Amino acid sequence: MTQGMADLLKQMVADGANGFRYDVAKHIELPDEVFGGKTSNYWNTILQNGAQYQYGEVLEDANVREADYADLFWNSSTGKGDITDSSFGHEVRNGVQHGSLSASHFTQHNKVTEDKTVNWVESHDNFANGEANIPQELNDEWIKYGWAGITAQKNDVTLFFDRPYKDGGTYGTGKAGTYGNGSGPFNENSKLSDAGSDLWKDPEVVAVNHFRNAMVGEDSDVSNCGDDLCLMVERYAGSSAQDGVVVANANGSEKNLAGTSTKLANGTYTDEVTGSKLVVSGGTITSGSVKDKGIAAFSNKTRSAIISTAEAYPNKGTIPGTSKTITLRAYQATNTTYTSPTASLVPMWMATP
Score class of each variant (00 low, 15 high):
Leu59Arg: 01
Ile46Leu: 06
Gly56Thr: 00
Gln153Lys: 15
Gly36Glu: 02
Ala103Gln: 09
Ala241Phe: 00
Ala51Met: 06
Leu8Lys: 09
Phe211Met: 03
Leu229Cys: 03
Thr309Ala: 13
Trp120Met: 11
Asp23Gly: 05
Arg163Trp: 14
Lys201Pro: 04
Val121Glu: 05
Ala343Leu: 02
Gln52Thr: 13
Ala241Trp: 03
Phe35Pro: 03
Thr270Asn: 09
Phe298His: 05
Ala214Cys: 01
Ser40Val: 11
Leu199Thr: 00
Ser299Pro: 05
Met350Arg: 08
Trp74Thr: 10
Glu204Tyr: 06
Ala312Glu: 08
Lys316Cys: 02
Ile319Gly: 09
Pro314Gly: 08
Val96Arg: 04
Ala258Trp: 13
Ala103Trp: 10
Thr170Cys: 09
Asn126Cys: 14
Ala132Phe: 11
Asp7Arg: 04
Ser281Val: 04
Val96Asn: 06
Asp140Arg: 00
Val118Trp: 07
Glu137Cys: 02
Glu60Lys: 02
Gly130His: 13
Asp162Glu: 14
Asn139Met: 05
Thr158Val: 15
Ala296Asp: 05
Ala148Arg: 00
Tyr145Gln: 07
Ala241Glu: 00
Arg212Lys: 15
Asp202Met: 08
Thr352Trp: 15
Thr39His: 15
Phe127Leu: 08
Asp167Pro: 05
Gly50Ile: 11
Gly252Ala: 14
Asn189Gly: 14
Ala132Glu: 08
Phe298Cys: 06
Met215Ala: 07
Lys291Val: 07
Val273Leu: 04
Ser281Thr: 04
Trp200Thr: 07
Gly172Leu: 04
Lys10Ser: 08
Ser304Gln: 15
Gly177Met: 14
Tyr269His: 00
Thr117Lys: 05
Gly130Asp: 14
Tyr236His: 13
Val92Thr: 02
Asn187Tyr: 10
Thr318Leu: 05
Val279Ile: 14
Arg235Trp: 02
His109Asp: 03
Phe127Met: 06
Val205Asn: 09
Val112Glu: 01
Val58Pro: 06
Val96Gly: 05
Asn129Lys: 12
Asp125Ser: 15
Lys166Val: 02
Ala152Gly: 12
Ala14Ser: 06
Thr286Leu: 07
Arg303Lys: 12
Lys38Cys: 02
Phe160Met: 01
Ser287Ala: 07
Pro135Asp: 01
Pro347Phe: 12
Ala67Thr: 04
Thr286Phe: 09
Met350Glu: 11
Phe186Pro: 01
Asn18Gly: 12
Glu311Ser: 08
Asp23Val: 06
Gln153Tyr: 15
Tyr171Lys: 01
